[in-house]
Design a protein around this nucleic acid. Structure first.
Lengths: 191, 191
DNA sequence: ACCTGAACACCGTTCAAGT
DNA sequence: ACCTGAACACCGTTCAAGT
């Protein structure tokens, strides 16, 4: 769904940009639950202006993350052509982990947007899932991954591990990802 | 660490009990982030009384969940003697899922308590992990589960799946648990 | 020893008034 | 068309005053 961008008044555009910058800084520092009042303050803008541009916290997050999550889709398509499909999937999975852990709390926000078409992040989640779907299908055709896993399963599992990683040291997060991804290999199906 | 219970004044004890009941109701209805003021109101008690008995939200949660989580440990020991160690582990895992999903938000609270000795829920998490450890070791000796998984890994993974399940339908949660548990079987080790 | 609730601090969100 | 900030609602937490 392409949104047509009407031109913004110069001051509005400047405020919009400032809000994005301030939001990124706040999210990076305090996680996705950072105070929106502080974001507005840092941007040098009234709180009402923040709400005018971004009616919800998710809308703000979407704007801040848009390029990053779109890049994940691009990366999926690049990897699709490369060498071993199994390896490509693993590589993409690590990219996904990295993107989902840029802000503390992001995994939770994404997870709650995944099946909620009303969320401003739903579209972004969809694109991620589609990218994963393609790589997954390719790995399944190559017999590298059990064939009853879906892109949604994969994305949710990685998200869940990323979330768990917020409460562990990095080593543990890495271990958990390995356990899960090893476990998705073909031949592991029991039930 | 056994805490010696000094006898409470009759009114204090009554308030304590009322708070537990009200808290359970509130957590069940609104999740672990339920308003503590409302808990106090429902219990017919001043907010200060709630804080006197339970200095933190976690302390209140611990009191409400104590028996339930202790039961999980008991269940682990019962299952330890029963038939197939692999099946016993799976069975216990399902119990764990059920316990961790009684309140929305509980998985998150437990996860953040898991490696934090300062949390009032740390002890409860420890007991759960120990129960899992025993069943896991037994399943590993039987060659049913890959031998590089720890009880902490298992508990964290199940917790992560339970958390994911809060944002999915029950079928999906069940699927994810199956994928993870199948994946822990012996012979899946790659890296 | 225990309880109460006012007081303080903080935040999200809306909207009337301004430019 | 856009911005501002006061106003409202709500919550967590502490603590002086009471019994």
């Amino acid at each position: 769904m392409e949104t047509v961008q009407r031109p913004m008044r110069a001051d509005a555009r400047r405020n919009y940009e400032r809000l994005l910058t301030a939001a990124h800084a706040a999210f990076a520092e305090q996680g996705t639950e950072a105070s929106l009042e502080e974001v507005a303050r840092t941007a040098g803008v009234g709180i009402g202006t923040l709400y005018r541009h971004f009616p919800t916290r998710r809308a703000l997050l979407e704007a801040v993350l848009h390029d990053s999550l779109a890049g994940l889709d691009t990366r999926a398509r690049e990897l699709l052509g490369s060498g071993s499909p199994g390896e490509a999937l693993l590589e993409w999975t690590r990219h996904l982990m990295a993107h989902v852990t840029v802000y503390r709390g992001l995994a939770a926000t994404l997870m709650s947007s995944f099946d909620d078409p009303a969320s401003e992040l739903y579209g972004a989640c969809e694109r991620v899932r589609v990218g994963g779907d393609a790589l997954l299908a390719s790995a399944q055709r190559a017999g590298a991954v059990r064939d009853d896993v879906t892109g949604a399963d994969l994305t949710k599992l990685v998200n869940a591990v990323a979330w768990a990683g917020e409460h562990c040291d990095d080593d543990t997060a890495e271990r958990l990802l390995t356990l899960v991804m090893d476990g998705l290999r073909a031949g592991n199906r029991r039930s």
